[in-house]
């Protein structure tokens, strides 16, 4: 628990484990509402479900109306797509499937890595309106979990739960404020190669801390799930990145963007703090992480 005496509500959603901590147990109606929102999000955006909207988009080009949260995804992905020169793209699903990260989890490459199509060649995505000119495999994995964290936070807020802490398997949002009398939560930064260890600790006040690591969804010989959208090949060298931001959507997306875009470039466009760890064991970080790492 982030604070002594708090209660946890645990569940599985979008393929991972969640825990929402609150000072008092969540009422059953709110729990049901949370689970329904998780299911709605999964049934829209999952690349791994045959019945999802993303699966329908992958089956045939056309005009699609997306749910409201699509607007936030479109804006953020478009910005990071531009900043990364196409390396970070929601079209990366096709490249992931080609390397074996497909709905069947075959984990067997079907050929050499290949870049997905350019955004403007196949996608017109404005707000909740999506038009595709070819079957495309959308993968919003770099931001989706963070966005769902934010959506659940909205639900809690709208149901009059002012204080909460959401842990989506290591992507974290602290919904408490220091003004509200809660101390920041001390958070360990998971060692990229050993989940029983940490490489540092950082206090998380109000806001989100998300991580991205290349080694966790790795399936052999340099293949992992963080791909460069300009080549479709896995990114080397950076093994883990963390981002602190106001929203989990931004923190999640920026944690992945740190693999693909120099942090200085991102700092010009986003208010966030960051930490990158490289495969040789060195690290680079913004001021927020100064003195927070074990060396």
């Amino acid at each position: 628990m982030p604070h002594p005496g708090w209660q946890g509500f645990r569940f599985d959603g979008i393929g991972t484990s969640w825990e929402i901590s609150t000072p008092a147990p969540l009422p059953p109606v709110l729990r049901s509402s949370v689970l329904a929102e998780v299911e709605r999000y999964d049934s829209t955006w999952s690349r791994f479900r045959e019945d999802s909207l993303v699966a329908r988009i992958a089956a045939a080009p056309g005009q699609y109306e997306l749910p409201p949260e699509a607007a936030g995804l479109a804006a953020l992905y478009r910005q990071l797509y531009t900043l990364s020169g196409g390396a970070m793209t929601p079209l990366i699903g096709e490249s992931l499937e080609r390397l074996g990260y497909d709905p069947q989890y075959s984990l067997r490459p079907r050929g050499e890595a290949a870049a997905p199509p350019a955004w403007d060649a196949v996608l017109e995505w404005h707000g909740t309106s999506l038009r595709t000119t070819a079957p495309v495999v959308l993968d919003i994995g770099a931001a989706g979990k963070g966005q769902l964290v934010d959506l659940l936070a909205e639900q809690l807020g709208s149901h009059g739960v002012p204080e909460f802490f959401i842990d989506a398997s290591g992507d974290l949002l602290n919904g408490s404020t220091e003004d509200g009398g809660q101390e920041p939560v001390q958070v360990a930064l998971e060692h990229p190669y050993d989940a029983t260890k940490a490489i540092g600790t950082v206090p998380l006040g109000s806001g989100a801390l998300c991580a991205s690591a290349s080694n966790r969804r790795a399936w052999g010989d340099g293949l992992h799930h963080v791909l460069d959208g300009t080549t479709g090949a896995p990114v080397r060298t950076v093994v883990a990145a963390w981002a602190l931001a106001d929203t989990a959507l931004e923190a999640d997306a920026l944690a992945t963007a740190l693999f693909l875009v120099p942090a200085e470039d991102l700092e010009r466009h986003f208010r966030f703090s960051w930490l990158k760890v490289f495969s040789n064991g060195s690290a680079e970080y913004s001021a927020e992480f100064e003195g927070r790492l074990f060396t």
């Binding site: 393929g15 290591g170 958070v187 360990a188 490489i199 942090a263 690290a283 074990f294 060396t295």
Partner: peptide, 30 residues
């Protein structure tokens, strides 16, 4: 490069048991 923050030549791991934290930021659970 020029960085606003800093650089660590080598970061080291400490066992979570030794650290007083209640939460872990990472991506170990897939």
């Amino acid at each position: 490069g020029e960085f606003a923050g800093g650089i660590a030549d080598q970061v080291v791991g400490k066992s979570l048991d030794e650290i007083n934290v209640s939460k872990v930021a990472g991506s170990s659970l897939t």
